[in-house]
Amino acid sequence: MQEYWKRNVALIRNLLIIWAAVSYGAVILLGDVLSKISFFGVNLAFWFAHQGSILTFVAIVAFYAWRMGKLDKEFDVEE
């Protein structure tokens, strides 16, 4: 059971790192570069700040649910 929680926490940590990189990295660190690129009529930095981070979060939640289903089956703790 300890291995199950270790892998669960590692998955959560990695997904949060991805979300932070998309949410903050694209807007703050790469903002100047991305603001020069047009995407659906707005600059890409603006799009990432308002839509991209939300879509990334939804994708991460879906991936987490799918991956935890597999992990639960692997450790025989599924509901």
Rank of each mutant, 00 (worst) to 15 (best):
K36I: 10
L30K: 02
G41L: 10
S38I: 15
W5H: 03
V42I: 12
K36M: 03
S35M: 06
V9R: 12
Y64M: 14
I17H: 04
Y24R: 02
V22F: 05
A65Q: 11
F40E: 14
W47S: 13
W19S: 00
S35P: 08
W66V: 15
G41M: 08
M1S: 06
G41E: 02
N8Q: 09
V42K: 04
I54Y: 09
R7T: 07
S38Q: 15
K6H: 12
L30Y: 05
I37Y: 00
V61P: 03
L29I: 02
D72Q: 12
S35D: 12
A26V: 07
A20I: 02
G25D: 09
D32W: 01
W66Y: 15
Q51S: 12
I54L: 15
G25S: 08
G69Y: 06
S53H: 14
F39A: 10
D76Q: 05
Y24I: 06
L15C: 13
R7E: 08
K6G: 14
F75K: 05
L15E: 04
V33E: 10
Q2P: 07
L34P: 06
L44P: 02
I28H: 05
L30I: 04
I54C: 09
W47L: 03
W66R: 12
L29Q: 07
I28R: 01
F57Q: 08
V9T: 14
W19A: 00
D76T: 09
R7P: 06
A45N: 06
S23K: 09
A49F: 03
E74M: 08
F39H: 08
S38E: 15
L34W: 01
A21E: 05
Q2W: 15
K6W: 10
L71G: 01
H50N: 15
F75H: 08
F39N: 13
I60D: 06
S35Y: 04
W66C: 13
F40D: 15
V58Y: 08
V58L: 07
